[in-house]
Amino acid sequence: MRRRPAWPRKAVDAAVKVASALAAALGLGFLAWILFVVLRHGAAALNWTFLTSLPSAPGGSGGGLGNAILGTALMTLLACVFGVPIGLLAGVYLAEYSRGTRFATTVRFLANVMMGIPSIIIGLFVYAVMVLPSGHFSGWAGGVALALLVLPVVARTTEDMLAMVPNALRESALALGSPHWRATLRILFRASRAGLLTGVLLAVARVSGETAPLLFTALNSPYWPRSLSGPTANLTVTIFNYAMSPYPAWQQAAWGASFIIVVGVLALTVVSRTLTRERK
């Protein structure tokens, strides 16, 4: 029997290893490229006026996006106020009251599916049920659209985190005569605090950079958000509008807004990741 030489196989192996390292470097390279571009262009646009004042007229220079920053913050907050409690309770029901039932399996499945529904479809839905009947775009509708994106994420993390709490803890609380609801809120939530917080932060990070669900709900506005019942300024739709405009000053402002969004979203992501790691 003749032996085949080993070197062609080893050469192929080495080539694949090098290629895999290059692919990983390519991925990281794109990440670095995007971040670099946003930070460089964005930093040039940032100053105190930019953060605190109203936008300039079309084509004019100066002015800022204070209203959009406030609007984005308000609607993200609204998304939390609506989305987090409903998501938490839904997760509690799945983990504590209906484990193993067909109802729980269905809801869990649909929550997973809901996370994959394009956010623009959620925007379309909220447009149809809130904007059309009321006859005008509103910050409330924007907040609700974002809340619908927060909801499944929080529900799924809550369920997973509660399922990780040791049963002994649950049983000892119940054995002491505590009702199930109090055991859940006082004992189980406390035990899984870091995990729940991670879920909420990740959901907020995802939602605060969303544009598509706001296009048909909050729309945008050049004014301060005095009430949430009219079109409400926000950073992401502003980026869209300004980037597509022919005015260099507006395009510059779009980079500034991108800077704020990227730093905010990545900071939230990194913080929530660090929380997860500490828990492990």
């Binding site: 990281l28 598509a212 969004i261 990545l266």
Partner: peptide, 24 residues
């Protein structure tokens, strides 16, 4: 860390990809 970096790509909002895509 490489894995973490690749996952961060998923954290960048869609509109930022749009800005980079259009202007760069």
């Amino acid at each position: 860390p490489v894995s973490y970096g690749i996952e961060l790509l998923a954290g960048i909002p869609s509109i930022i990809y749009g800005m980079w895509g259009l202007f760069v």
